[in-house]
Amino acid sequence: MKKILLLSAYRSDSHASWANWLRQNLVADWRVLELPGRYFRWRIRGNPLSWLGELPALLDGWQPDRILATSMVDITTIKGLNPALASVPVSYYFHENQFAYPLGEGQHSSVDPLMVQLYGALAADECLFNSDYNRHTFLEGVDALLKKLPDCKPDSLAQRLAAKCSLLPVPVKPVAEGQKTAGLIVWNHRWEYDKKPELFLQLLQLLEQQQFDFSLALLGPRADKTPSALQAIRQQFSARIIADGMVSRAEYEQLLGRAQFVVSTAIHEFQGLSVQEAVTAGAIPVLPDDLCYREQYADLYRYQSGDMQAAAGRLLELSGSVNRIGLQAAFRDAGDGWQQWLLMRQ
């Protein structure tokens, strides 16, 4: 049986879903180290310190055949600190890449996260990406970074990396379609700056102005401090809200099954698992013409990014239809892709 060391330095929702699926569906001798999904800058630079005692203890009497590490993991330092891992092949998994991650208000630009991922990609035997958008923005970002560096830098680095990059999405758990509630819009994203909930508020205001009869399921993780956009939505649309907050998995799937629409206003999305889950349940996607969505959904389901007039028009245009699009093969068959990945590395 293949012995795999899984290193995930930031256990956020999508990373957790991926790690859980692998252990439940791929037959291997898994040993897993994970860190909580908070304090991003510390996690991406500090994970070798966080695991300084735990990793040698895990390796005592057990030697992996392969390391599967997320791109949050400083794998070059991990190998340097743990000589037993020096010759173990590495599959480096990109849920995201820092070259294309938007800065939030008050955040400062830093080259450190970029270098962790660049050195990790160079040290890895293969680089796996959850979407083609993630892959090409990473390679474009590497090129852009090297152009800014003053001297003593390698030529054609992105091309060198491209040769070992491939697409392998996070598997999506299909959700059963239920009895649809006409006009039910689900928001099942984080309530954070990169998902632009203030644009979602604008969209709802426009729909109300156009006298569209809708209801809302406001799902997705949120910080302890209520975002201003969510406060405004609660105040202005309280009579339309049928769900608000984290719910059980069963309730979540039931709401997705009832939803007519799933809406995104994001400025950052590398795979869009929440939208994909809703689409499997028959929700009609209304999405920015940007990010990973371009490779996943037809023009009919996309609007000009940031233009809420266009988003409202698209939603109204689709209000008389039903979702029969399904997921594209690369995402629908991601589980088979991971099974093949394990088989080819036996």
Rank of each mutant, 00 (worst) to 15 (best):
L218F: 08
L218P: 04
L216M: 10
R41A: 11
N130P: 06
I4F: 00
S305N: 06
Y297C: 01
R66K: 10
Q209G: 05
H95N: 02
L6E: 03
R38C: 05
H95L: 08
L255E: 05
L219W: 04
D13A: 15
Q209Y: 02
G257D: 05
H189W: 04
L203M: 07
Q211V: 07
G257S: 09
A176N: 07
L206K: 15
A84L: 11
A223C: 00
P227S: 13
E317M: 12
L203Q: 09
L327N: 13
E277L: 03
Y303H: 09
G120W: 02
G104H: 13
S156R: 15
V175P: 00
Q328C: 15
N20L: 13
L256W: 03
L204N: 00
Y92T: 01
Q231D: 12
N82Y: 05
W30C: 08
R160E: 11
K180V: 08
A329P: 01
S131D: 06
F214V: 02
S12V: 10
T181I: 13
R11F: 14
L118I: 09
N134H: 08
V111W: 09
G337I: 02
A229Q: 07
D125K: 11
C292P: 00
S14T: 14
S228A: 15
S91N: 07
A100F: 05
N97F: 08
H268G: 04
G306C: 07
Q296E: 12
R190F: 09
A310V: 03
E105Q: 12
A266S: 13
L122V: 14
G178L: 12
N25R: 15
R240C: 00
L343A: 15
Q179F: 05
S215H: 11
H136L: 03
G106A: 10
Y119G: 00
F270A: 07
G178E: 04
R324G: 10
K196T: 13
D213E: 09
C152T: 01
E177C: 13
Y193E: 15
G282L: 12
E269K: 05
A16S: 10
L184R: 11
A281L: 04
G37R: 13
R302L: 14
N323D: 12
S215C: 07
V88Q: 08
L287A: 05
F270W: 04
W187V: 03
M308Y: 01
G313S: 14
D112P: 00
W62T: 04
L55Y: 00
I267M: 13
V175S: 02
H268K: 09
A16F: 04
F129C: 08
R66M: 08
D299M: 06
N47S: 15
K79Q: 14
T265Q: 14
N323V: 03
I233P: 02
C127R: 01
R160L: 09
Q210H: 10
L55R: 06
V73N: 07
G245F: 07
K153Q: 14
Y93S: 06
K180Y: 07
L315A: 08
G61V: 06
R249V: 14
E253T: 05
L207T: 06
F40I: 01
A16P: 02
D74Y: 10
S264A: 12
L26W: 04
G272W: 05
D125L: 02
M1A: 14
R23P: 00
L327S: 10
Q231H: 11
M344D: 11
S305W: 01
A158L: 09
Q209M: 06
V88F: 06
P36L: 13
R332G: 03
A310C: 04
R31S: 09
E269R: 08
K153C: 04
E317A: 15
A239T: 12
G120M: 04
F99P: 00
